[in-house]
Design a protein around this nucleic acid. Structure first.
Lengths: 343, 343
DNA sequence: CCAAGCTTCCAAAACGGTTTCAATCGAACG
DNA sequence: CGTTCGATTGAAACCGTTTTGGAAGCTTGG
């Protein structure tokens, strides 16, 4: 059943039927109702392919998911972000297309999406230091919002980010207040922008108290269980061990905990840990009482809001770039305690 | 730059240009090269919206992600499956659209995708007992492949599944061979089909050795860290404790391990654990040596293959339903050992 | 009673490609 | 030398909507 059939069926022209269904004012209220009823009766739904061609809008937002060609890691945060963004799209009648591409073909993927008119806008994931994608997207003029920021990029662009620096600054201060002086940082890869900002918060908090950051206490790697385990083990085997860890993700923290268990160290007593908690739906930080002391910010909510921003940008292309900075909460859990007395 | 412009630019008709670019044989090799060169020079890419309308194909596969309205859980396995499927789509010039919908609007979502012509086929996630979606999709005649199976559905349909029953049967036998007699099952929600099959494997293995399955040793819940923790703790506080656990996911196992740690039980010595390992990219079962003894099957690979099946179905709509059963490997890790002697 | 102005509808032209059907041109054939 | 055939190209229809530019009929005001 298409518009033309429905129209002849009703003894009307396609024009009128289209207008009736789309709520144009110039159609008689009686005919509108007749049309609406017939549409419902025949289960008529307009063909999206035709609408998109006729209106010139794709009613679609793209997400490009680069697959690192070396280590094929899917960002664990990704699923929840997508779920949040997807909610927003559904509510607004938009579709979401995911492009999974090898990371060395990413720029081509953006160009394609633009010139083929597959999407009206996109969301950029996992920005890096001096990320070249931002300039590219500004050039080709496709509306976009970055989830995160890209240190080093001077051109203006829209983004939504968590205040990573401030979160880790506060977390470090919290540990310092508890008497910790040697605090290990188990961070994500430091070409990722969020990791850079978290380190800067950590370093600044230490410096502010006159503590010289120790490179031996700063790790940066993929945020997997295995790497967390390795990092923790390595730091705990040093002569001058840390008494606390600041861990960039719940997943890495799982590995850290495994290391502590192996060494017989009790969480919160022998060793304090603060993690960053993205509130992943399948990896809650405790059901009621938080397990870990954590800097917390829902990535699902970030997805919802970033999607709203991109839809707004699509609707108002002349708007200047929008930005939104979310603050992370500092949640006190059972994984932190006063620094053990050193001998 | 569109086809018409490119054509006038070349002094050719749109027809010829279209044919040249799409590799039709009836165009002169010299003109074809001229056209190709011009297309590249002008960075011409055909508009997908127009192609889709003209050809009547959406070149798109849909994935409907139901969001449980009560507990908003995103399946952790989802990201890796999508990544695998996405690889296949990219390779074949297909797009992937994700529809995130409240689970009570799911059937409407399928109908919409079909009658609006947004997709050529879909992949059905997380099938349940007597899943009504299968009948619906057969009715509306949209090509689809189910990731998993739906016990109770008699109509034929295409699916790709892991042999969950066999995997858990073998795992249980493995534990029995090690002398374990009381084995706890920490399973997913048992309206999910895979969970039903896993339990049936577990129960059958026990029964085959004359062991009566004990309801007090069978748990079924969402596969989160928290629920795994709770289930393990509860079973370990019984009078007649289990000596081994069979755990349906890596994530639940994290909680189980936390429970063991709290109780001071050592993995592999005091307590054996076998998990099911989907090979999530961010939660590897050890980097080199497996940590857990596990039934292993890559969900990423499942995504790749399921996508191939759906594309095949789209290309050959008359084909009868295809099915593919993947066997899980049994990987021996460090989490299993002989049953401790009972007193 | 006529012109102007609403209200309501429709025919036809987009949108940017693909595809059907037909035409042209040289070469080959009889 | 006329006919046939293959190779190559193009005109026009089509895909299913939206949207532009009228147009008919009715009302209203002078």
């Amino acid at each position: 059943m298409n518009l033309k059939e429905l129209a002849t069926n009703l003894g009307l022209s396609p024009t009128t039927v289209s207008r009736a269904l789309n709520g144009y004012p110039e159609v008689n209220e009686a005919t509108r109702e007749r049309v609406m009823a017939a549409a419902k009766r025949h289960r008529y739904l307009p063909n999206t392919r035709a609408i998109r061609l006729a209106t010139g809008r794709a009613m679609t937002v793209g997400h490009v998911i680069p697959i690192a060609t070396k280590h094929e890691i899917v960002n664990p945060v990704f699923a929840d972000f997508i779920a949040g963004a997807g909610e927003t799209y559904s509510r607004n009648g938009y579709d979401m297309v995911l492009s999974v591409v090898p990371d060395d073909q990413e720029t081509q993927a953006y160009r394609d999406l633009q010139s083929r008119g597959t999407v009206d806008g996109i969301i950029v994931h996992a920005p890096r230091l001096d990320d070249p994608r931002i300039e590219l997207l500004n050039d080709i003029g496709l509306p976009f919002v970055v989830h995160g920021r890209a240190t080093g990029t001077k051109a203006p662009y829209s983004w939504l980010d968590v205040n990573n620096r401030r979160a880790f600054l506060r977390a470090t201060e919290f540990l310092l207040d508890l008497g910790h002086r040697r605090i290990g940082l188990i961070n994500g890869l430091e070409y990722m922008d969020f990791a850079i900002r978290r380190r800067s918060g950590y370093v600044d908090a230490l410096s502010a108290r006159g503590i010289q950051p120790d490179p031996a206490l700063m790790f940066s790697d993929e945020m997997t269980e295995g790497r967390g385990y390795r990092a923790a083990l390595q730091m705990l085997n040093q002569r001058d061990k840390p008494t606390a860890f600041l861990v960039s993700s719940m997943i890495s923290a799982l590995g850290v905990r495994r290391a502590l268990d192996e060494l017989g160290l009790k969480l919160g007593r022998d060793m304090s840990i603060i993690i960053h908690d993205d509130e992943l739906s399948y990896l809650r930080n405790g059901d009621d009482v938080p397990i870990y002391t954590a800097t917390r910010s829902s990535v699902r909510e970030a997805g919802r809001q970033t999607a709203e921003m991109v839809l707004d940008l699509i609707a108002n292309p002349s708007k200047p770039p929008q930005t939104r900075l979310l603050e992370a909460e500092l949640i006190i859990g059972q994984s932190t305690g006063p620094a053990p007395n050193r001998i």
